[in-house]
Design a protein around this nucleic acid. Structure first.
Lengths: 134, 134
DNA sequence: CTTATATAGATGCATTTGCATCTATATTGA
DNA sequence: TCAATATAGATGCAAATGCATCTATATAAG
């Protein structure tokens, strides 16, 4: 709990100080970029980011207002649309990554040995997706 | 990240379904109860719970309104006060614990082996207090 | 002693979050 | 075909959060 809270706050601070958007934008931009030219449906993004539906909706609105994504009508399903990353969005994501990565690198290195990091990595993979079993 | 988010949401759901207050109340009540009859100063509580100052202030107001703590004037320092747990507060904390503990037990058992749990425990202790070094 | 600064704690205001609900299209079933 | 239900996504409103600031007392410095 504390590790994840601290990590988040360190990363958010670093991004803010660099004048960049918050971390949730990075996660969203990464998934949207990976989706390529077809784009991705908001409900798919929601599943991958583990966000509530209204959270996804609002996040996309803001990212769109900033010009980092665009919405394209969906041929198969008139209810929704797909979102595509723009050139500006790609640039922004690329700009955010080094800041993000540097934080993680420093925090991990100053907290544990490489062997411990491997252990933690193994344990982390035990948690896959929400199983709704409890 | 995902593990801590899921754990939190499972615990919060269990508490809500049992008609009990949210987890932050438990943490606060536990620390206040541990402080005994002398009580604890809000700023000390803040340090232990890693909450922002205004968050602590508001949390205490609500818990006080619910009758689980009471404020006593502070002889040593006229600026502040100490908070003490009430009988009702002790009862509430005691009622919350089994719900909380059961969630943790089930989640850990169905996610990992006892050996892995020990490993995780060791890794978790690497994170002590905020060091503000990054 | 008097003024300047630091600390404890509360709070106004803007933003964010969560819940419930709404619209619109899709799918199912009689 | 047409009603009933399900799903995609948006949004109004209330509650929670974060920031900045405020009051009051404590401590330090001249």
């Amino acid at each position: 709990m504390r590790a994840s809270e601290r990590t988040l706050s360190v990363v958010e601070n670093a991004l803010r100080e660099a004048g960049l958007p918050e971390l949730s934008w990075y996660d969203a931009l990464l998934e949207i970029e990976k989706a390529g030219t077809e784009g991705i449906r908001p409900y798919e993004l929601r599943e991958r980011l583990l966000l509530p539906q209204y959270g996804t909706s609002r996040l996309l609105s803001k990212i769109e207002d900033a010009g980092f994504i665009k919405r394209i009508p969906c041929a198969k399903d008139g209810r929704g649309h797909a979102v595509q990353i723009t050139k500006a969005g790609q640039d922004m994501r690329a700009q955010m990554w080094p800041v993000y990565a540097q934080c993680l690198k420093v925090m991990i290195e100053q907290t544990m040995t490489p062997a411990q990091a491997d252990q933690l990595c193994d344990l982390a993979t035990l948690i896959q997706r929400p199983s709704d079993t409890v």
